[in-house]
Design a binder for these strands. Structure first.
Length: 484
RNA sequence: GGUCCAUUGGUGCAACGGUUAGCACGCAAGAUUCUCAAUCUUGUAAUAGGGGUUCGAUUCCCCUAUGGACUACCA
């Protein structure tokens, strides 16, 4: 049987890391098995619907290379792939359950349910529906239907015994049936709940492996009993643990920057780094290996490698990986990647000239092995583009030494005499100051660096000067001497 | 409160009854350099606690502790 996995987000907010990690597993497993990866939109909660959600989700998945083989905007044989367009299907199956006595109409008001729950919580008994409507006789149902033509439909869960299943990640899991709730399958607004819709769809879409977050473990008995009621073969269950924030809490859609997937795209993380990072959180190939390409992940991914405990999101590690992947690029490639950020900062025009591109490439080479995220590019290269430098506070002490102006006067003269503005002549010119004055190399270089870049750190000074050019370098020395 | 699950350095993973408990990130030091990075070298630090089972437990079982998820007409 062909393996088919699905990723089924609900468009209720911007995608977060935990969501996407599940999608990574779904995707890698399906591809490893030569199967299908389906994207299905679980838009059954109209009150929480967020417009931008789905677009972001699809953009994020594609950005990372998780292309679905079936789903919105690619189609497939098992559509529609929006649950909101499958209402008739759910109603048909719900009716079947009603007819067979496996589900029932529930006319209880929300007020009554809330009151009941409050009482249960106060009494410290397990909260749950009291099954008031479970055994209404047909006449009563008909009567109530007149008053309330749109009752919810509840599924009759078993009252005795246990429901158990084999989870690939953690083995056999057993639940007592007597504490299971008669959950709602169809809501008053006619939309199905997750429990109902996902089971109907997973069956109809021939999903073989359900890979979803561990928060679903507790409701798996509901799903299993639904399969049984329909006489369908349940899928293989795979519940990877959640990804937690630095404090060890579940990543939620509303919490801060750590969780928002789109922010990593904006910040300039590379998709290959992100994929590598996400795949190796909660999964291991068993090797002591750090870098995995998408192809390698597909080749090596197995369900058995999924770990059974939660992982804490570790940003320094992502940063390290991103740096690694950036260093694996050629400078030409990196230049293209940082271009949008440089354009946004106003350092490069929208349609860059030959000249601009040439300079950008040189600049890119100089920052190549120190840039961590693409969005850092403008900050790292600012002094190549802005002539009116802001001097770094920490380096101002260089302008306080009594000999610094004398020293820089020599440097300036030496540079003015330098005709060949390239590395070695520049080095010779600057260092010849050491013969003219009794000073330390450190002072010489650091002060010159401050004059020319405004900073105490950065790429090699001579390389920087080559890019900045003779005239501007000398201007900058003059400016510093006027200001301080 | 109840149910289910988990627990190897600060973090992510290895070791699936027998290793001096390994790798990576981080951190620290050194080398290198004009500085910061990058790179190379070295170092740092863990089997939550207590009972069993066993010739032998990180690994199997039980208890405790801690952590997490779920407990909606949300997914």
């Amino acid at each position: 049987m062909k393996v088919r996995t699905r990723f089924a987000p609900s468009p209720t907010g911007s995608p977060h890391i935990g969501n996407i990690r599940t999608a990574v597993f779904d995707y890698l497993f399906a591809m490893h098995e030569g199967g299908d990866f389906i994207l299905r939109v679980e838009d059954t909660d109209r009150t929480r619907y967020v417009e931008s959600s789905l677009g972001d989700m699809m953009k994020g998945l594609r950005w990372m290379g998780l292309d679905w083989t079936e789903g919105p905007d690619v189609g497939g044989d098992y559509g529609p792939y929006f649950q909101s367009e499958r209402l008739e299907i759910y109603h048909k199956y719900a009716q079947q359950l009603i007819d067979e006595g496996k589900a029932y109409y529930c006319f209880c008001s929300k007020e009554r349910l809330e009151e009941m729950r409050a009482l249960q919580v106060a009494a410290k008994t397990p909260p749950g529906y009291d099954r008031k409507c479970r055994d209404l006789i047909p006449e009563e149902v008909a009567e109530k239907l007149k008053e309330n033509p749109h009752p919810v439909i509840r599924f009759k869960m078993k009252r005795e015994g246990v429901t158990e299943f084999e989870d690939v990640v953690r083995g056999k899991i057993t639940f007592q049936n007597d504490i299971q709730d008669d959950f709602i399958a169809i809501k008053a607004d006619g939309f199905p709940t997750y429990h109902f819709a996902s089971i109907v769809d997973d069956h109809l879409m021939k999903i073989t492996h359900v890979i979803r977050g561990s928060e679903w473990i507790a409701s798996t008995p509901k799903h299993l009993q639904l399969y049984e009621a329909f006489g369908w073969e349940p899928p293989i269950w795979v519940h990877p643990e959640l990804i937690l924030d630095e404090k060890g809490k579940k990543l939620s859609k509303r919490s801060d920057t750590v969780t928002a997937f789109m922010s990593y795209i904006d910040a300039g993380y590379l998709p290959e780094a992100m994929l590598n990072f996400m795949a190796t959180m909660g999964w291991s190939s068993g090797e002591d290996k750090k870098l995995f390409s998408k192809e390698e992940l597909i080749e090596k991914f197995t369900l058995e490698g999924i770990v059974n405990h939660p992982a804490i999101f570790d940003l320094p590690k992502l940063n390290d990986l991103n740096g690694e992947y950036i260093r694996m690029k050629t400078s030409e490639e990196l230049m293209v990647l940082i271009m949008p950020y440089m354009q946004k900062a106003g350092y490069v025009s929208e349609n860059p000239s030959e000249e601009e591109l040439k300079k950008l490439l040189e600049v890119t080479k100089l920052i190549h092995d120190r840039i961590v995220t693409l969005s850092e590019a403008p900050m790292l290269t600012e002094f190549f583009y802005k002539n009116d430098l802001e001097y770094e506070e920490k380096g101002l002490k260089r302008f306080k030494k009594d000999f610094w102006k004398e020293m820089m006067t020599h440097v300036k003269e030496n540079l003015e005499a330098c005709d060949d503005w390239t590395y070695t002549p520049l080095e010779t010119a600057i260092k010849s100051t050491l013969d003219q004055m009794d000073i330390k190399v450190g002072d010489l270089m650091a002060t010159t660096r401050m004059c020319i870049t405004g900073r105490t750190w950065g790429p090699g000074l001579y390389e920087c000067m080559e890019v900045i050019g003779k005239e501007e370098c000398i201007n900058r020395i003059n400016r510093a001497m006027e200001l301080y």
